[in-house]
């Protein structure tokens, strides 16, 4: 655990009088996810039960309790994307990356495939986001292109 990082977060928390959500957002920003030992560290320092942190972290979809991959592919699962057939494309991508059922991150930590309720770009459904770039009107062929593009840009 990187104590220096934690202290920096603690300082800004005290300065801005933040709350648990903003604290967790900062931890995630700094560590990439919410490591268990970091939560216990803050719990002790702030005298807030760790269960409060975990309660909030598990409630919101955007907190991750496990490390995520270097490249992140987000599939939109909104209504328009569903109607336009996003599900088979997600399966294809998962298959391509050899993701076992129930897992979101590949074993080598290179890729994370996750879904989000709606990115609000329904007119270009189905929508995928590869490393923050929006790919619209997705098809099986375009999915393969997207994976190639992400693969090329790796290590950035």
């Amino acid at each position: 655990m990187n104590e220096k990082k934690c202290l920096a977060i603690l300082d800004s928390y005290r300065e801005h009088g933040g709350n648990i959500i903003s604290l967790l957002q900062e931890i995630q920003e700094s560590f990439g996810y919410i490591p268990e030992d970091v939560v216990f560290w803050f719990s002790k320092r702030l005298n807030i039960p760790a269960s409060n942190f975990f309660g909030v972290a598990t409630f919101y979809a955007q907190f991750y309790l496990k490390p995520r991959g270097k490249n992140i592919i987000t599939a939109c699962c909104g209504t328009a994307c569903h109607v336009k057939g996003s599900a088979p494309i997600i399966n294809k991508i998962r298959e391509e990356l050899k993701l076992p059922q129930g897992e979101t991150t590949t074993k080598d930590g290179k890729y994370t495939v996750e879904s989000v309720a709606c990115v609000g770009a329904c007119s270009i459904a189905p929508v995928f986001i590869g490393n923050k770039k929006v790919f619209g009107k997705m098809s099986m062929e375009k999915a393969a292109e997207m994976l190639k593009e992400i693969d090329k840009g790796k290590g950035k």
Partner: peptide, 11 residues
């Protein structure tokens, strides 16, 4: 907090 899937007016 436009959470409805299939809506993007607010955005």
């Amino acid at each position: 907090d436009e959470g409805d899937p299939g809506a993007f007016m607010d955005r």
